[in-house]
């Protein structure tokens, strides 16, 4: 009887402690909770997604029109080259090559970054983030590369790489894993810079731990498409 009483008391004490902990968590959570300033209905979120998609569709069509117009202009200019302005055309083409506005071919490397199939509890480490691509582009820039593309889209020197939810936007265009990164440049220098952990420690460690799939191959002939836009210059002056 006495033993039963003792067990009951212990059970009751444990219950009190557990109840207290739960109440404490709830009270603290209540104090820290805040009404979300912007609570959107699902319909409104869908409408925003659709609006963004329509802008992206428009963007593709506008870029296609621009490319056609540029080809027409290039053809007109070539025709006048025969009148002794070849030097100017060559100067223009050289500038366009440097800026990524022309196709580029050469030797280099191909990197493929993909999310690992070995999903772990920390699934965030398995994902490839916009910041990872930015860090990688920076590493490649230290290797003085001549041109880069990601999933066929040319990276220019003022490209932006941003996160939009689970998607990544490169130059305002959605790209998704796996990421095939083609680089024209000195493959030895590129490999050397990629081996320097200090330049991109977070991504380097996740690759080393196989949280992300990373492959690299040297290629003798890589073709990069031209950037499908142009540089907008409204504020620069040099006069």
């Amino acid at each position: 009887m006495k033993k039963n009483y003792s067990v009951n008391i212990n059970a009751l004490i444990f219950s009190f402690i557990l109840a207290g902990i739960l109440i404490g968590i709830l009270v603290a959570a209540q104090f820290q909770s805040s009404v979300v300033a912007n609570s959107f209905l699902v319909d409104e979120l869908n409408a925003q997604d659709e609006l963004l998609e329509s802008y992206e569709k428009d963007q593709k069509e506008l870029k296609s029109v621009i490319n056609n117009l540029k080809e027409q202009i290039a053809s007109n200019r070539e025709q006048i080259a025969q009148y002794g302005n070849q030097a100017k055309l060559e100067q223009l083409e050289e500038l366009k090559v440097k800026l990524g506005l022309s196709k580029l071919s050469g030797s280099g490397v191909r990197i493929v970054l993909a999310e690992s199939s070995n999903k772990q509890l920390n699934s965030n480490a398995n994902l490839i983030h916009a910041a990872d691509l930015r860090d990688l582009i920076n590493v490649l820039n230290t290797a003085q590369v001549d041109g880069i593309s990601i999933n066929g889209h040319r990276v220019i020197f003022n490209s932006s790489i941003n996160a939009l939810g689970s998607d990544i936007l490169l130059n305002k265009i959605k790209i998704s894993s796996p990421f095939e990164i083609n680089i024209i440049g000195n493959s030895t220098m590129i490999a050397g810079k990629l081996s320097e952990r200090k330049l991109y420690p977070d991504l380097f460690d996740r690759i080393s731990k196989k949280e992300i799939n990373f492959s690299i191959e040297k290629l003798a002939n890589i073709n990069l498409e031209a950037y499908d836009g142009d540089y907008i210059v409204k504020y620069l002056k040099n006069d």
């Binding site: 557990l18 207290g20 109440i23 404490g24 009270v27 603290a28």
Partner: peptide, 9 residues
């Protein structure tokens, strides 16, 4: 218990 719960939170 309440204090511990708050601290955990």
């Amino acid at each position: 218990g309440i204090v511990m719960g708050a601290l955990f939170s």
